[in-house]
Design a protein around this nucleic acid. Structure first.
Lengths: 165, 165
DNA sequence: GATATTATTTTGAGAATCAAACTATTGGAT
DNA sequence: ATCCAATAGTTTGATTCTCAAAATAATATC
């Protein structure tokens, strides 16, 4: 609520920092993407590539579920990624209703590029923190995460290996 | 999810936590919004209300800059918020080119509702940390934030020290 | 074989966004 | 004073992301 009590500026500081970091990361992800050879990919599209993953083919439904978008939305995204040469689409032989999608070589490169960005961001962050800071940071983030999970019952995207088919 | 956090696997833990938190926060913000009386507000629109703020009027340019959107985009958002009764719009008397926008009572209530969500999130996090840990967390986040700001030259949205309430 | 179920695509619509063209106002320079 | 450049916003046209609902196609069930 309105937290009228004392409220040393720790609260304000922390709130500001988190909001700032959140905005920053969104911007950075966007920026890190656009600067390179994969300029024709949007953030959403990168997330689709991420969800498809490097290992083999996945069907539309499971990928859409992981991304928390409808299959219709995914169909459109895949159409575009297909046109740009990042993914392949083929029908399953066993069950011809099912559409299997997978990354092309180009798609795998884009995937890797994005993964590298994540790596660098995390590694650089870690390297700048003391051992104690690392512990506290992880513990604080776990706290927030658990609090969220309890309080709102979230649909978590891809928590498991998702081979239930 | 192990809370033991072997430090050698810190990278994976942190990466996972961040990705998870990101998805969560987006979903929760949406959800926390929709559940209540302000169902006709989107996340983007709430962010506009946030940027306008409780204190007096602001002009279009500065709000757009804070939100990292074009003035044209903001014009459209303001048109809708006006129609729904969340904001007021009037031209400045001193310089009639300038349009001043501010929150109506209803807009202020929506602002506060969103601020409460933030409050609760932060307070819950803080309350589980010791004094020492609080300091460490702030310092760690500041460290990361500054690194980002330096490395990518980010357009920062409103870093003003404002108190919620 | 008829019907129900499943997997996906298509269609129609609505936000959010941008760039570029346009309007209105102000501030200088002559 | 008048004309021109700069500034502040709005409008327009287009694109992307999204959903819900209708349509299509394949499989499963009875």
């Amino acid at each position: 609520m309105d937290s009228g009590v004392a409220m040393n500026n720790l609260y304000g500081t922390l709130n500001e920092l988190l909001v700032k970091l959140f905005n920053d990361i969104l911007q950075i992800e966007e920026q890190a993407l656009k600067c390179d050879e994969f300029q024709d990919l949007s953030i959403s599209e990168i997330h689709v590539l991420e969800a498809i993953g490097l290992e083999g083919s996945r069907n539309m439904s499971s990928v859409a579920r992981d991304l928390n978008i409808t299959i219709g939305t995914l169909t459109i995204a895949i159409n575009n990624l297909l046109r740009k040469g990042y993914v392949m689409r083929q029908r399953s032989e066993e069950d011809r209703r099912i559409v299997l999608i997978s990354l092309t070589d180009k798609g795998q490169e884009a995937f890797q590029h994005h993964a590298d960005f994540h790596d660098e961001m995390i590694n650089t962050t870690i390297s700048r923190l003391s051992e104690e800071e690392k512990k506290v940071l992880v513990s604080a983030l776990e706290n927030i995460s658990n609090y969220f999970k309890d309080k709102y019952n979230l649909k978590r995207s891809k928590a498991k290996t998702e081979k239930t088919n």
